[in-house]
């Protein structure tokens, strides 16, 4: 599904990723943990193709294709989804309009027929029901006036609607109370399938009680320092990141 080979990336001239290697097979859920400032969010932005995050070395192979030259929207169309740590507000644009635009843009890119209004609304209703969300959230402007929990749930809803092959969750658990965390995890787990993979980025082990990973990686000082099973997360919870602390770690 995804193969990251010796990935180097800089932000504003400063090298943040210094040779990341990672392979995710279809159907797998991987977790990346690490101290603050280790490059976790940078990795997610680099995978999604954000401007200003420059790949200076290495490759990102996704389904056999090098992604590094693609625009964010092309990557999205190919099935890469990033759940933002801080979802962005778009005033005046109703959530449903936004989702409609996104779904049809992706379908157009893939050469599929666009959904008409009725088909789309039907699909959307089904998704919100599945996720136990209210329709009221669809009428409001994207993330405007949403609570922290609502914003994260909105990310999960978008994920459900866009049905990505590779979901990257960037600190989706930050700022969530336990109930919201459950709802979000349920949403993510509902999407688990043999042909879909996830990359869960988090600082805390807590989330991994709900989204159980196949593999856990420790990212520190711009590199994967250690890889293990889910027990690694528990170990980190107990011992902290002291073993991995370098000059970049906070």
């Amino acid at each position: 599904m995804l193969e990251i080979k010796d990935l180097h990336a800089t932000v504003q001239g400063k090298e943040i990723l210094k040779g990341v290697n990672l392979i995710i097979e279809p159907g797998e859920v991987h977790a990346i943990m690490g101290p603050n400032g280790s490059g976790k969010s940078t990795l997610s932005y680099v995978l999604a193709g954000r401007d200003g995050y420059e790949v200076t070395g290495g490759r990102i192979i996704y389904e056999g294709e090098d992604l590094t030259e693609l625009d964010p929207e092309e990557r999205a169309a190919k099935g890469i989804f990033l759940a933002f740590q801080y979802p962005v507000e778009i005033p005046g644009v109703p959530n449903s309009t936004f989702l409609n635009e996104a779904v049809n843009a992706v379908r157009r890119y893939r050469g599929e027929d666009e959904l008409d209004k009725i088909q789309f609304v039907k699909m959307l209703r089904a998704k919100t029901k599945e996720l136990n969300m209210s329709d009221e959230m669809l009428k409001r402007a994207v993330n405007v006036g949403f609570s922290g929990g609502e914003k994260k749930r909105n990310e999960v809803l978008q994920m459900a609607v866009l049905e990505p092959k590779l979901s990257i969750l960037d600190e989706t658990d930050s700022g969530l109370d336990i109930d919201a965390l459950k709802i979000v995890s349920d949403g993510v787990n509902a999407l688990r399938a043999p042909d879909r993979s996830s990359l869960v980025i988090t600082h805390y082990q807590r989330l991994l009680d709900y989204i159980v990973p196949d593999k856990v990686h420790v990212l520190a000082r711009g590199r994967i320092q250690k890889t293990g099973g889910k027990e690694l997360a528990l170990e980190l919870e107990k011992n902290g990141y002291a073993d991995y602390a370098g000059e970049e770690a906070a």
């Binding site: 954000r50 200003g52 964010p72 999205a76 962005v88 644009v93 936004f98 779904v103 843009a105």
Partner: peptide, 24 residues
């Protein structure tokens, strides 16, 4: 830049993303 990247990450091309934000 945050708004544009967010919309583009959801698959909406840049010009359409601008039009969407402006319409909002």
């Amino acid at each position: 830049e945050d708004q544009l990247f967010y919309l583009r990450q959801r698959g909406i091309p840049e010009e359409a993303a601008v039009a969407l934000v402006v319409n909002g």
